[in-house]
Structures are given as structure tokens and as C-alpha cells.
Design a protein around this nucleic acid. Structure first.
Lengths: 250, 250
DNA sequence: CACAATCATACCAATGAAATACCACTTTGG
DNA sequence: CCAAAGTGGTATTTCATTGGTATGATTGTG
């Protein structure tokens, strides 16, 4: 038996004395239970606020209060004029080479970036190894916090050889746009992906708890001639991001 | 199982008020399902936008919106004046499709497996969706604990249609060996990766703490004709397994 | 009474979708 | 070779429905 939203609400409705609780909290739990039971798959549209209010004999304000909490929690997404939807995880192709910005734009999300650091410096030994540079060479460094629709999704630390891009301020939103402008869009990349626990600092940046799972990705991007143009390490919130990869045999 | 586009759309269509969803999203999903089922081979032309609109009683704008999304995702290609086509697989991925056993052997580690469960049962709704089976069909289920050099690395839950392998005991160590013996080695697979926190049970199996990060991987493996032969969900210890992929642009 | 939750209502802004028309390109057939 | 037919590309208008927001009345409770 599939759980229905209305049934779930009525279940929470009765039991008045022992478990008295505010209407919008009851409704909120009802919606959450229904989603978690799988009756509303991700991407599914909820009934409209007006419908819900009418069917449950509540005012629209109350319904909105219930929905609002779940939107805050990231369980629901609302689109003005369209409706309320069960949130979908963001899916990124692991085998196609796209920058973060292009990727989000393609999904109709609003990418935003906040620069935590932007400067020039000497390569660290690790960067020298990854970028194939001699010790002492210069790189530009970007440390960026990535948002989708104003929710933090990832922290990225990027190093680009100063011989490729000399001015760190040339990178506005998308590194790949900046690279394309100077004819250096990479055509190949190696990625390494693993699961890690977030440290306290990173957790704070990403607005979740320390220790929560995240995807750690290291990427080296190459030009046709084999030069490395980018070395990036990223941390993606585990609860918001999926990667898909298509594999081929033989 | 072959699916038709119109059938697929109507399947998503019914369910009326309980399962409301926007028309262009329904159509989009329908087209995607149809392509992934293998009914439309790469290079195949779709019906024209006007035909689709007429047959499905939608406006052409709506049809275009559905198609547009899939073109953005690279699943379809449109040629002005010619038509809409299922995209050829341009990207030759270097990611090789290998089972866990082959993978570890290649790394010079000693694979070992312990069966936690091995049996036959009816498909769950989730499996039915993933394997493209009808509800009520049988699958064989394997739940395996994977070791490398006697250290636990992953738990894997696998479902294979009983029409492909009827006897669960036919699988000794490697599922892919067993599939190869009967000439059903998959040639393509889709994987989904994300980071999750381990539950108490899984943590115990993998000999680490509850809540520690892990890679959750869902894999659907396909034959040439589009049939799904395997649906596996795995949990890899985050501190012990890396995933490496080579990406290609353009 | 004071206060907060809730209801009722009205209006605004954004989106989905339909209907329609016209353009530009490709394919096809005479 | 050329014209007709069919294809995607684009734009416009119209309408219903949806979420976004503000305001004031009503209810229940301490």
C-alpha cells in the first residue's frame, strides 16, 4: 500500500490529546513521511498550495508555512508559476568534461560563485607534480565556493600555471570560459574521486555538519598537446550531488 | 523489453491527480526511457515535432521544450530541416567496464568474497524500474562482502533477472565471469556515484565506524540489445577506494 | 486582555501550455 | 536542376494555473 499525502495527514491529525501539535508541523511531517515512503519520487510535483489547502481544510498560509520549512531543508523545490517539486539531486556526468558553471546552467539552476581566495604564488610541491611544472614556477590560485540557486554546493581549489593565465582576475565565474577565450579549452582530464568526511571549516562553508560525507575530487585537465592547464581539488556536498559515469567494455 | 514512445508517455500519463507532473517533463522522461530501453538506436530519427504534438495532443511548443532538454543533455541531436536524431555515442570513454574482481586483480590485490545472501525472489519496485522488468518477475539476489587482501572493502547488493541467470549458485566469485560463460557479458553500464554516511549495520560489516563516509555506487549494466542484466548497489569504504576516470570534451 | 496561530482575501509575478504564423534549411521527386 | 514538401528555428499572443506577498479578521489559549 502506497502512502498518500492526505491519508498521512489524517493519521497525524487524530490522537489529539497526547500529541497535540501545530497544524503546520503536522502537515510538514505528513509531507515528509509521504516523500520518504517513496510515494512521491524526486521531480514529482506536489498538489498546488491551493489544492492542498482546500482538501485538508487549511488556509493557504498554513500550507505555505509547512512547505516553506521543507524547502529550507532542501527536501522540496518551488518554482514560481510552476509548482512545488520533490527535490532532485544534482547529477553530473563523470565522463564528460564540463565545468561546474556550464553544468548548472544546463540544468536551469542559477550558478553563483564566491571567491575565497584569488592570487598568484609559487607552486607547492604537490601542484608542481600535478601540473608538470618546475619548482619555483608561478601559478594563479583560486579558492571558490560554489552555489546553485544560492545553496552552497562545493568548495573548489584551483591552480593554473601563470604561463596559461597570468591575471587571476581574468576569471569571472567560469574558469572554462576564461580558458576558452584564450583558446586553451582542455580536451581531456583525469579525475580521481573518493568519499571523505568534511572537516569543521569546510562543513561551515558548505552549511552542513562536520563529519558529514562529501565527494572529494581531484582533477587535472589537459590540452591537446599534453600541457596541464588546471589542477583542481573539490569537495561536493554528499547530499546534493550525484555523479554518473558511462562505462564501456571491449 | 521493447518500449514504444507513445506507450511510454501514456504510462507516465495515467495516475491522474495523485501523480501530477508537468506535461513537458512527462514527455521528456518518456523519450529518455524509450531511448535507454534501446527501442531507438543511436542515429535513429525521432518522429517530427509536429507529428509528436499531433499524436500526443500536445502543442508543438511543449514538444520542443521536452526535446530541447534532451538536446542540452546530449541525448538527442537536431539538424535544421532534417530532423531530430538519437545522438551517436561520440565520446569513447576510456573507463573500462570491469567487475570488482578483475579490478582488484589488476591492482595486484587478492580479492575475496563472502556471500551474505544468495537467493531468488520477486523484484522490488525499485529493481523493476532499474532492470526494466514487470512487477512480479523473478530475480536472483546476491549480497556480497568484498575483501582485498583480507580487508573488507565493500558491500554489494546485486539483482539479476532470473531470465538471464536462473540459479544463484552459478555465481562463484565474479558475476562477470558467470555472465561471460553464458555469453551475456555486458558492453555498457551506467553508474551513479555519491557520498553517503555508513549506517550501523554496514559499518560493522566493513569494520569501521558508523557515520564514516562511503562511496555509494549504483550500476546498471546493459547488453548490446539494450537489455539490463545487472543492477548493483555498492558501498565502498571511503578511506580505501578511489575512483579514477578519464574525461573527454567535445 | 494579550498574544500567537490560523483563516480569509486580494492582488502580483512567473510559468506552462496552446494556438498560430512565418522563416530557413534539408530532402526528395519529377 | 529546381520546386514542393517536410523539417527544425523563432516569435507572438492568449489564457489558466502556480507560487509570492501583504493585510486584516477570527479563533483559541494562557
Amino acid at each position: 500500500m502506497q502512502t498518500t499525502l492526505y491519508g498521512e495527514y489524517r493519521k497525524l491529525d487524530r490522537g489529539g490529546e497526547a500529541q497535540r501539535s501545530l497544524a503546520y508541523l503536522r502537515l510538514r511531517r505528513a509531507i515528509q513521511n509521504t516523500i520518504e515512503s517513496g510515494a512521491f519520487p524526486p521531480g514529482q510535483a506536489l498538489p498546488s498550495e491551493r489544492d492542498l489547502a482546500k482538501k485538508l481544510a487549511l488556509s493557504r498560509v498554513t500550507v505555505r508555512k509547512a512547505i516553506g520549512g521543507l524547502v529550507e531543508d532542501g527536501l522540496l523545490t518551488q518554482r514560481h508559476g510552476a509548482g512545488t517539486f520533490v527535490a532532485e539531486r544534482i547529477v553530473k556526468s563523470f565522463s564528460r568534461l564540463t565545468g561546474f558553471t556550464d553544468d548548472l546552467r544546463a540544468r536551469g539552476l542559477k550558478p553563483r560563485v564566491k571567491f575565497l581566495e584569488r592570487g598568484v604564488g609559487e607552486v607547492t610541491p604537490e601542484e608542481a607534480m600535478a601540473l608538470n611544472l618546475s619548482p619555483g614556477a608561478d601559478v594563479i590560485r583560486l579558492r571558490r565556493l560554489r552555489f546553485a540557486d544560492d545553496k552552497p554546493l562545493a568548495v573548489e581549489s584551483t591552480a593554473v600555471p601563470a604561463t596559461v593565465i597570468a591575471d587571476p582576475n581574468a576569471v569571472k565565474l567560469s574558469l572554462y570560459d576564461a580558458l576558452e577565450e584564450i583558446g586553451c579549452r582542455p580536451t581531456r582530464a583525469l579525475q580521481r574521486l573518493r568519499a571523505v568526511a568534511l572537516g569543521a571549516d569546510e562543513a561551515k562553508l558548505l552549511d552542513c555538519d562536520a563529519g558529514s560525507p562529501a565527494l572529494a575530487i581531484e582533477r587535472r585537465a589537459f590540452l591537446d598537446d599534453g600541457r596541464v592547464v588546471e589542477f583542481t581539488t573539490s569537495l561536493y556536498r554528499g547530499d546534493a550531488y550525484d555523479f554518473v559515469a558511462e562505462l564501456h567494455g571491449d
